[in-house]
Simulated assay, not measured.
Amino acid sequence: MKEVAALAEVSPMTVSRVLRGDTAVSPDRRARVEAAVQRLGYRRNTLARNFRQGQGTGTIGLIVTNLANPFYARLALGIEAAVAEEGLRLMITNTAGDTARERAAIRDFSGRRVDGVVLVPAGADQAYLAEELPAGLPVVTVARPPAGHEADCVLVDDFGGAYAATGRLLAAGHRRIGFLGNPPSVYTGSERYRGYCAALHEAGLGIDDALVKRGQEDMASAEAAAAELLALPQPPTAVFCTNNRNTLGAYRALRHLGRSATLAGFDDFDLADVLSVPVLVVDYDPDEIGRRAAELLRERLSPTGTPAPPPRRVVVRTTIIAHGADEGPAPDQSGR
């Protein structure tokens, strides 16, 4: 700023007044300061300015487990749109589902003095947050409630969505319904499996372990697991999948093997409506999840003078979308 002032032949205070939009500065001096700023390539250090004024850094940290998953792109857009209204910026990092990388990311964001963190937990225990986070730094977890640490969270109705989709398949006449899911340690997969089981039990059906495949984390492993289900002497007439990677893997298996079955699963995806098999999708709005997480953070960042509320849990509702005409099994494959 001193260099700008020297080049413009004004005081550093005049430079400061021009940069903050003070209209009392004369047009001549304003033009000289702006020309000097342009010539020197000066950029205001917002971080240093905020620190000097006792403010935060104006940034929110987002930690996700898989940047390749379109869900996280939508989540980030929802958060960014909400925090931008407050003049905040979003920083994103990826853990690839590794708990050590998650802890390192928390430590890194703490060191960067972010104003708050939105976390998609990779592990089942977040007790370490008490050690790594500065006192008062708000955290909101997404897709999984925090364990071992008190924090706000935003969840999808995983159980209800799986229960409704499986019930829809049962109402269409399916009795042999396969299950393709992510690892049991993943909260969403566990809740969606619980919804699948509850719907079968309510229909008077037991759980056939031969029809259950859990642990698929990508499309290739989902395709292999689906192929094993389709190779059974009595293959499933429908398959419920816990995410879009499992759904697409199952579809590939059906295509490669020349089989037919109804698919149902969480997460809508592009071209679901043009697949050659009926697809039921448990849909929800990832942008809304991001917005709700940002709202919880903003409330923590704007103290009202009253005691902070206890940790809050927001659950985003799901809906069922039917792509394709017939949801029922072929007569010779009903399994009845």
Rank of each mutant, 00 (worst) to 15 (best):
A210M: 12
L137P: 00
R192P: 08
Q216Y: 09
G335Y: 07
E288C: 12
A330W: 10
R43Q: 15
A84T: 11
S276P: 01
E191S: 09
G41W: 12
G58Q: 06
A250C: 07
V25D: 09
L257A: 12
V239E: 06
V154W: 04
T319K: 13
V37Q: 09
G206W: 10
P235T: 05
D287W: 13
R32N: 03
A165E: 06
Y251A: 14
G56Y: 14
A124L: 11
V114N: 02
F109M: 13
T319S: 15
E295C: 01
R17G: 06
H174Q: 04
G328R: 02
T95A: 02
P12H: 13
P145F: 01
T95P: 06
P121T: 03
V212S: 04
G335V: 10
T46S: 14
T141R: 01
P310T: 11
R29C: 06
G56R: 14
T59L: 13
L230H: 05
Y72G: 04
N66G: 05
T59S: 10
A253T: 07
I92R: 12
V274L: 08
H256F: 07
R101W: 02
L248F: 05
V156M: 10
L280I: 13
Y187T: 13
A104M: 12
A293C: 03
G21H: 09
E34H: 07
F179T: 00
L301F: 03
A322W: 01
D218G: 07
P236S: 07
L170W: 08
V10P: 01
R176V: 11
A135S: 01
P329W: 01
P278N: 06
R176A: 10
V239F: 07
E86V: 00
N246P: 00
G195Y: 09
